[in-house]
């Protein structure tokens, strides 16, 4: 505040000075009595030389007042308006950028979340599929085991039946062979006993 008052005083002093300093009787100070031949500027006896200084003081003062009070503040007003406009626009741009950055951050977050959800879903589906496949495999294995067991039972039965028929077939075959080869019909008990012992020897 005190500084502003001081500069105001300085400005006022400058104004006063502008109005008075130019009107000083300068010429006598420059070169009293100087009358250089051919130098109209030093012809201080010419009233127009002093006159131009007094006129100059007034013109300079008026110019200073018009510039300092009217013309220059007008320029300053336009410049400050431009500065203000630029600052406002920059502020809006900064806000827009902040909003855009936030939107981008939200987008990234949503994307990351969606990715995580999708990955979780994929994992869940894969796990379910794996479990279903395991269950199906287990069921299939169980069914296959049952079928294999059934088949083995059937094979064992068929084998038992087949083995049960082997002695009869062998006896019949042996009787036929003996008859064909010797022309003698071997006693059925004898052949049966021999085939039975041979089969027993082979584990049948």
């Amino acid at each position: 505040m005190a500084r502003a008052v001081m500069y105001d005083n300085i400005r006022r002093a400058g104004t006063l000075l502008a109005s008075s300093a130019l009107a000083l009787p300068l010429m006598a100070m420059v070169a009293p009595g100087a009358r250089a031949e051919g130098m109209p500027q030093l012809d201080f006896g010419n009233p127009y030389v002093i006159g131009q200084v007094i006129w100059g003081a007034g013109i300079f003062l008026v110019l200073y007042f018009l510039l300092s009070r009217s013309a220059l503040p007008k320029v300053e007003k336009v410049l400050s308006l431009r500065r203000q406009t630029i600052e406002t626009d920059l502020g809006i741009a900064h806000k827009a950028k902040t909003r855009a950055d936030e939107a981008v951050a939200d987008l990234h977050e949503a994307r990351r979340k969606a990715l995580a959800d999708a990955q979780a879903n994929v994992d869940k589906v894969v796990e379910e599929a794996r479990l279903a496949a395991a269950r199906q495999t287990e069921e299939m294995n169980a069914r296959l085991a049952t079928e294999i067991q059934d088949a083995e039972t059937r094979i064992a039965q068929a084998r038992g039946q087949a083995l049960a028929s082997v002695r009869e077939i062998s006896t019949t075959t042996a009787e036929t062979l003996i008859l064909q080869l010797s022309g003698i019909a071997a006693p059925a008990d004898f052949v049966t006993a021999k085939v039975g012992s041979a089969a027993a020897a082979r584990g049948l």
Binding site: A21, L22, L26, Q52
Partner: peptide, 10 residues
Amino acid sequence: IAVTLALALM
């Protein structure tokens, strides 16, 4: 010189 000196003195 009268004008320039007046300005300079100011």
